[in-house]
Nucleic acid binder design. Structure first.
Lengths: 335, 335
DNA sequence: CTGAAAGCGCTTACAG
DNA sequence: CTGAAAGCGCTTACAG
């Protein structure tokens, strides 16, 4: 059976297609009686409006594109889920693109979005060359999440302030020999902000030692890379506390330390970043920084919709939260 | 600047729109010279075909819908990522719907897909009433993944055989007092299959004890629920081995046992399901069953495309793999 | 190999 | 409050 169109509905209801359209989109005045007839006919036929036709005619798609490094990372998948939720309840549809932090995949993906005529795009995370985002933002509404690009509205976390605070608390809790362990920055400004916050704090302490390891390979399989780093390098450095830029890195350290017979937090304290679900259940549980993925997603989406509707928009910043658990004993009152 | 259309390209190239269309879709014979001109003009204008118009005209959308319980679960997010990859490289676009294992959300979501005129749908996992899937499969091409629905092509794992094998190996390794711990089945046939496999094995062993806990609340936050179950109930039962239906459940058990001072695997052995990334790094690392999300996704996608193209299709089954780690010491040669 | 024309399903000024 | 008509951007028989 062919799908029912507005014509079929019109015929059954005994009115014109214009009227049917008006009733169904419901933004003009229509007599109650006709509306009734139309709705009845539509219901009876199981009429489903054809989005493609509507898009074509109205020159808007009621869809958005979301570009993220990979949809299977815990944080990003949480964002994906949230955006889906907000978008659907606002009548928008979502097209996801995985950039894999690779400019050419990102470009291909953005082309798909362009062909589909999305009304706007959200770029979440990632640290590729910003030129593409810059370019696109001239053609279509764009918002970035967890990343800043010049002249593009963004929603970010206060990484720098948070890590500064974290480092200070650790210092006040008695730690002196610090190791900062994270991925190389590339263009990830959330990562460089975290490191900057660390330095903001540590530079004021003349009796503290700061060692830094920034590893390119930590962009890959964080658990296994940090595991090996601990075995081969960190276990010899023996810092008092390791501040990492990611929970998976912290978890890798914890697993490796166990194998090496080094006790966490007694001999080395460790902090993570992201508050992954598993971090609360690790042994020891991981002291970390929580970033609210749902909040990020919500603000990104709302900001984008405002842009699409030509309302004024601005960038915003979300506060992170330090979660004290077993892996790094931060003393009461130092936060 | 208005977006370039096929008309603009035609004008610049000095040909008709029909010719432009033919060149750009590239399936009819065209003189090389004209093709050249058209391509040049298109390039120059930065022409991007309008998908909505093409959809409307051709009555197919080159898009598919994917319905899954939640896109942020590790297994499902891996499926999402894979499907995205295969779909994009085949020129398809993907619309994701989260059912939340709730029939009314699923129905709403499917309606969105229907409006968008997706060419087909993949339903992955979940255990809601199958009537909706049944219904939809009459209207549009449908494939189910990790779940079976009557008369719908499916791609599933061999859960029953695997768990039977796992149970047998544990028995041969010396375990006698078994606890099976999992979610209540509802309509999740992967879950009931696992339990069936357990029984297939255990029923042959007259000197083995089998205790079963099937908890509704394990459909929620598995880590915390299993943690509490261990503290309040399982630590008193003290089985020799716990077969769980999920790695998160196994991880919760491990965390709780540590708090209770019960040693795993020495006092109780534990197995999981899914081979989550974290399971390899847990302490102890988790003996589990690996299900290849990428393979599932690939076969689902290919099967769906075959259906859409009216090729014959059939259901398929993927073998799972038992991964022996520290949490349950399966003896060499018992597998 | 190429063009003129019809039509996919919808919405929206325009006229009444 | 309602209808006839035009048009969104494309593709594809049809004719040459």
């Amino acid at each position: 059976m062919r799908k029912a169109t507005i014509k079929d509905v019109a015929k059954i209801a005994g009115v014109s297609t214009s009227t049917v359209s008006r009733v169904l989109s419901g933004n003009t005045s229509i007599s109650i009686a006709t509306a009734e007839k139309v709705r009845y006919a539509a219901e009876k036929l199981g009429y489903i409006p054809n989005t493609a036709a509507r898009c074509l005619r109205c020159d808007k798609s009621k869809s958005i594109g979301v570009v993220l490094p990979d949809i299977s990372g815990e944080f990003y998948s949480l964002c994906a889920s949230s955006i889906l939720k907000y978008a659907h309840s606002a009548g928008y549809t979502v097209l996801f693109i995985e950039s894999g932090n690779d400019l050419s995949s990102e470009t291909e993906g953005v082309n798909i979005l362009l062909q589909h005529g999305v009304d706007g795009m959200i770029f979440i995370g990632g640290g590729i060359d910003a030129s593409l985002i810059q370019e696109i933002s001239k053609e279509v509404s764009v918002v970035t999440g967890d990343r800043k690009v010049k002249n593009v509205p963004s929603v970010t976390f206060n990484n720098r302030v948070t890590v500064k605070k974290l480092t200070q608390s650790l210092y006040k809790s008695g730690f002196r020999k610090f190791l900062y362990l994270g991925e190389s920055f590339n263009s990830f400004d959330n990562l460089s902000d975290r490191y900057a916050g660390f330095n903001d704090a540590i530079n004021n302490y003349h009796d503290a030692t700061a060692i830094t390891i920034l590893e390119d390979s930590l962009h890959g399989d964080k658990l296994s890379v940090s595991f090996e780093l601990f075995e081969n390098k960190i276990s010899e450095i023996m810092p008092e506390v390791i501040i990492t830029s990611n929970d998976l890195i912290a978890q890798g350290i914890i697993s490796a330390s166990y194998k090496c017979g080094i006790k966490i937090p007694e001999q080395i304290a460790v902090t993570g970043f992201d508050d992954m679900t598993s971090s609360a259940y690790y042994t020891p549980s991981v002291t970390t920084v929580r970033q609210d993925a749902d909040k990020l997603s919500k603000i990104c989406f709302n900001t984008l919709i405002d842009m699409i509707e030509n309302k004024p928009v601005s960038s915003s910043e979300i506060n992170q939260e330090i979660i004290i658990r077993e892996s790094a004993d931060i003393k009461e009152g130092t936060l």
